[in-house]
Design a protein around this nucleic acid. Sequence first.
DNA 1: ACTGAACCTTGATCTTGGTCAAATGCCGTG
DNA 2: CACGGCATTTGACCAAGATCAAGGTTCAGT
Lengths: 243, 243
Amino acid sequence: MHATRQVAPSMGACQTCGLRHRAVCAALNDTELDDLQRISHRKSFEAGTTVALEGEPMDYFANILNGVVKMTKTLADGRQQIVGLLFPTDFLGRAFVTEAPYRAEAATDLELCAFPHSSFEQLLHKYPQLEHRLLESTLSELDTAREWMLLLGRKTAEEKVASFLHLLTKRADLSAPCNANQDGPLRFPLPLTRTDMADYLGLTIETVSRQITRLKKQGVISLVDSRTIEVAALEDLEDISGG
Amino acid sequence: MHATRQVAPSMGACQTCGLRHRAVCAALNDTELDDLQRISHRKSFEAGTTVALEGEPMDYFANILNGVVKMTKTLADGRQQIVGLLFPTDFLGRAFVTEAPYRAEAATDLELCAFPHSSFEQLLHKYPQLEHRLLESTLSELDTAREWMLLLGRKTAEEKVASFLHLLTKRADLSAPCNANQDGPLRFPLPLTRTDMADYLGLTIETVSRQITRLKKQGVISLVDSRTIEVAALEDLEDISGG
DNA sequence: ACTGAACCTTGATCTTGGTCAAATGCCGTG
DNA sequence: CACGGCATTTGACCAAGATCAAGGTTCAGT
């Protein structure tokens, strides 16, 4: 359903990969990249599939080539919270521990460029600039997480939903085919179900649905179908999302 | 008021510092540590003082020797959220950028072991194991932030307050003098005002106050005074906090 | 001891978002 | 086409926590 863009590398062709200068690989020069290429392999998951279980070993790292990964935490009674989304170019996997710290699930159909755990850690050791890059990407993940803490703790339901849609407008070019560069209103598919959106925003599906209806009535967005958004007034969306 | 423990190093004595093997310094051996010692200096702040402003340059990094730092984000209309607390042994400052990403404020009286920005970055370059340590500490900050996202998005007011108190029982030995190793109920001072607790938990001060009263009535905790907690039933506190 | 400011607690009331329930729409399959 | 399952929407009602409004405590400064 998703995943039709041609940014993905053909096997063994890191040099020409669309992510070459945007994912962790950017830390390496062409020669060094060969080392990475040698250990890389493709992996795909269907939407809804579990990629890693909390506390269970995960034997590889990966760049997201295509699709969206959700990382979730769960309370004993089943309440769930999505604690992070990974988009194309993002790095999946936790260095220096074998157990995954959260459950990772394919929110959409997914393509990964994967590296076996131990081989990749050897490369981290061999190339400090790779580890440096990982530190920088971890720091920016931390910023994102804290931005979301502000949303979860202090924003209203309307601001939350608007913030999420606004986030997607910024990452839509990455997460799905879209008309970002064309004229007319910005249109893109939602990578998450209403349930997932609720779990990401700390709301219920009913509230998410009502707030979407509300934004629709205000003329800020419209729905092509229930999973395809068209942003009519990006400025307004940004205003409503509250900074 | 706080800050009476003797873990702090005397100036120029990293080797005998109580944090030697617990803070970032642990990444370096005794010889390498001299390099760090040479650039280190003490800094103190009074409770309530601003340590760094969001978006403003911060010209040093620091280990927390004593006290607690709160990092906050604010919406345009003044709504606030504390997005992280730093306790003794934690590392303050963001590598590779000069601007602080959040406002940092001394929640209690504070003592820091500070390193000038550029000198420290030179050491990061010289000693990859120091950068490695920084990556590990950033990853654990990320875990903490995501744990808090679950709390903010999905826990009830009672669970939130219990979780915070439970967190303190785990870090009380770090944040303040306490009787953790003695017999009897665990007693420690709260490093935050009710307002700060509310900003950390995504609640109002009234709700925080009511939930504390509630826990008191249940016999889980008692208040020596409004800023000193005694945990009567640690098990119960853990249960209520919801895993 | 008196005063004012901060901080904390408590009560009464209101509102936002949750809960419960039902209806609608959208496939994919027999 | 009819059926069943799933995602989404909508409505009616409810409750957790926010808001508004007093009071109480503590403490520094006079």
